[in-house]
Computed example of a mutant assay.
Amino acid sequence: MLQSAGWTGYFILRSLSGVANAMPIMFVVHTLLLTATGYSLTLLMGSLFRRLITMRAIYTVILSVATVVLAATAFSVIETWSHATFVKPGARPFGVESFGAILLNFALLAAWSALYYGINYYLLLEEEIDQRAKLENQASSAQLAMLRYQLNPHFLFNTLNSISTLVLLKQTERANAMLARLSSFLRYTLANEPTAQVTLAQEVETLKLYLEIEKMRFEDRLRPHFRIDAATIGARLPSLLLQPVIENAIKYAVTPSETGADIWIQASREGNRVRIEVADNGSQAHEALVATQSTGVGLANTRDRLAQAYGDAHGFTTRTNEHGGFSVIVDIPLDAAPGAAASGA
């Protein structure tokens, strides 16, 4: 389309120039012949340039200039013959006239070549940018998947160890119940893509399933509490984002204490953002150690997943809370899921 439009414009402009300079009617035939010649030559040049554009730059430049010189010479020979045949029969241009025609045609074809390379290098650049964006997305997805997959072995080790203990103690009913809940939890993790986002309501239901498994281990020592604002349940977040945070609280607040600990999972809306806090009432001294040294798979994993999912548009902080324990606070954009139910968890 560009080729046709360009040479059509060449024909119109050169014909109008001939009319303005009182050229004979046969000048139109002469211009038409030159247009067809230029169109054909540039088609051949384009076919060659498609091969040259993939070569090293120095070879591309040298061969392209040589091609333009040859094409301009051929164009000038045809133009000279056509001018002597249709415009001024019997004229035989030579010397400066002939050289001038070659220079003008060289300038014309050089401009065409520059335009050709400019357009095609731009298209190649656009294609490379698209490929780079796809590769970056794939790398980001792969990293998100890796971070999600780190959770399962960590959690499975603890759960299977507990099931093994129950079997050794011949508590088969409790072992079967834990296996059934573990099966349901793993079925959920396999049903969701590792890079997928879920609503906060779905995340809460999964956390409840996870906590049911952990309560089989800790019984009354583990006391979870959910305080989920109804305005936040449609917010979307990476699946199983909060599981390692709760696992961290169980490890450092519930496990070391004979009386166990309470764990609060709270979500509230603040403007167009959602504030999620996981808090416990474990030992302050112990939790200070957690905050400074023992982030391990849990908190570090959550921080990395937030960075991958939201970039700079997220918050992640830890603090000692009013219960005398440790809190992890996550702040994310409110991205309401379509059709989210307007009820609390």
Rank of each mutant, 00 (worst) to 15 (best):
L2A: 06
S4Y: 10
S4K: 08
A5Q: 09
T8F: 13
G9Y: 05
I12Q: 07
S15D: 03
G18Q: 05
I25S: 14
F27G: 00
H30C: 07
H30Y: 11
A36E: 06
A36K: 02
T42H: 01
T42A: 12
L43C: 10
L44K: 06
L44E: 00
R50Q: 11
R51S: 11
I58E: 14
I62M: 14
I62G: 09
L63M: 12
S64Y: 03
T67I: 08
T67R: 02
V69D: 00
A74C: 11
A74Y: 02
I78T: 03
E79D: 08
F86D: 00
P89K: 02
G90I: 03
A91D: 08
R92F: 11
R92L: 13
P93C: 00
I102F: 13
F106T: 09
L109E: 00
A110W: 05
A111F: 13
S113P: 10
A114S: 11
A114G: 15
L115I: 14
L115A: 14
Y116F: 15
Y116D: 10
Y121M: 10
Y121N: 13
Y121S: 06
Y122R: 12
I129C: 04
D130L: 14
N137K: 15
Q138L: 12
Q138K: 15
Q143W: 05
M146S: 12
P153T: 08
F155E: 11
F155N: 12
S162I: 12
S162R: 12
I163D: 00
S164D: 11
L166W: 08
L166Q: 03
L169A: 10
K170G: 07
K170I: 06
Q171I: 09
A177D: 11
A177F: 02
F185D: 01
R187W: 06
Y188H: 07
N192W: 07
E193D: 15
Q197W: 10
E203H: 07
E205C: 12
L207D: 03
R217S: 01
R217V: 05
E219Y: 06
D220E: 11
L222Y: 01
R223T: 07
D229V: 06
A230H: 10
G234S: 05
A235F: 02
R236P: 03
L237H: 01
L241W: 04
L242R: 02
Q243G: 05
P244V: 03
P244L: 06
Y252W: 13
V254P: 03
V254T: 04
E258R: 15
D262F: 09
I265M: 06
Q266V: 15
A267Q: 01
R269D: 02
R269M: 07
E270L: 13
G271M: 08
N281W: 03
G282Y: 00
G282F: 03
Q284S: 10
A285Q: 15
E287A: 03
A288E: 15
L289V: 10
T292D: 15
G296E: 09
V297G: 02
T302P: 11
R305L: 08
L306Q: 04
Y310A: 02
G311A: 05
D312F: 00
D312E: 13
H314Y: 11
H314M: 11
F316H: 08
F316C: 00
T318H: 04
R319D: 12
T320C: 04
G324Q: 05
F326M: 09
I329T: 11
I329K: 06
I329R: 07
P333N: 00
P333D: 01
D335P: 04
A336F: 02
P338Y: 02
G339T: 04
A340I: 07
A341I: 09
A342C: 10
